[in-house]
């Protein structure tokens, strides 16, 4: 980190640029060191954004060239077959994420109501809040192991239902924490005003807190949905995979992420192209949900 090789770097600081009168020594050792570190930070920041753009570029080039109507509607091809697509995987992903949402949103919302409003300082609330935070760092594959042990073994079959439950386990903590956060930021005077008018707690929550906190809650739910849509580890041995369209919730089910995993390791170009196209679809779904969630979250009442 020697100073001499950086003479070309002209350090400019926000705080000093305003005051021209003050004497500055731009080539003093300290200033040079500061300039060097600033340059390094810029380089690292640019480097850190390279992977995202590289991934998106590859998806557009490799996946975009293969993405057509057949790809998003047809069934997966077998080993040497040409063509084909991943229509069943798109439906499978949507259905399992739907099941997971139906399970985790009501439970998460009610739990958040309890944590944020009904009894925020009780032992139960504190423990639940802590465990929800612990669960956000819970490895997704263990959700799969858990549901395998709890559901697949007893039902004796891989199923869309088991896949949905595994995703719900992963969505729940995100929803609880986001909804709690959204509800606690509702101004206290709004709640007090409603109580003052003689509302019951249920009325205050239903008619004041939930509508006011809705943007934040929706953001949390959509981020959780986006995360679940991209998950693959918990589906590996709960939903497994299927080469056919879904006909019942209790049979093995295809999903985009597992299709990508399976096809990525195959030695056939057709399958690898389809893996890229499926990745493009998956990333589009996830990014659209993510960006919408941010947009909703920004519009505060």
């Amino acid at each position: 980190m020697s100073a001499s090789d950086l003479t070309s770097e002209s350090p400019s600081f926000d705080i000093t640029s305003a005051s021209h009168q003050l004497h500055r020594a731009p080539f003093e050792g300290r200033a040079l060191k500061s300039g060097f570190l600033t340059g390094l930070t810029w380089i690292m920041a640019v480097l850190a954004s390279v992977p995202l753009f590289s991934v998106i570029y590859m998806l557009l080039i490799e996946g975009g060239s293969r993405l057509d109507w057949e790809a998003i509607t047809a069934l997966p091809p077998s080993a040497f077959e040409m063509g084909g697509g991943f229509g069943n995987a798109i439906i499978g992903t949507l259905i399992m994420v739907g099941i997971a949402t139906l399970i985790s949103v009501p439970i998460g919302l009610f739990a958040a109501i309890y944590l944020a409003i009904l009894d925020p300082d009780s032992k139960l609330a504190q423990t639940a809040r802590f465990l929800a935070k612990v669960l956000t760092g819970f490895p997704s594959i263990l959700a799969g192991v858990f549901v395998y042990a709890a559901m697949v073994v007893t039902m004796k079959s891989y199923s869309a239902l088991a896949g949905g439950v595994a995703l719900a386990v992963l969505m729940l903590p995100t929803i609880v924490l986001a909804a709690e956060q959204a509800m606690t930021t509702v101004p206290k005077k709004m709640k007090d005003a409603a109580f003052g008018m003689g509302c019951t707690r249920a009325q205050v929550i239903w008619q004041v807190v939930l509508p006011t906190g809705m943007p934040g809650i929706l953001t949390g739910v959509m981020l959780a949905v986006a995360g679940a849509a991209g998950e693959s580890a918990p589906l590996l041995f709960t939903a497994l995979f299927s080469n056919y369209f879904l006909s019942s919730l209790t049979e093995p089910t295809a999903s985009l992420s597992i299709l990508i995993f399976n096809f990525s390791g195959m030695p056939y170009d057709n399958q690898i192209e389809l893996a890229w196209a499926a990745s493009l679809v998956l990333v589009l779904i996830v990014l659209v949900l993510n960006i919408t969630a941010r947009f909703i979250g920004r519009q505060k009442f």
Partner: peptide, 23 residues
């Protein structure tokens, strides 16, 4: 820039795997 970094977290693991294999 913060959004760019946060979107990095949104890319599914399996897509990073695919990118890792071929890029």
């Amino acid at each position: 820039f913060r959004t760019i970094i946060e979107l990095l977290a949104a890319i599914p693991s399996v897509v990073f795997g695919l990118w890792g294999i071929y890029v």
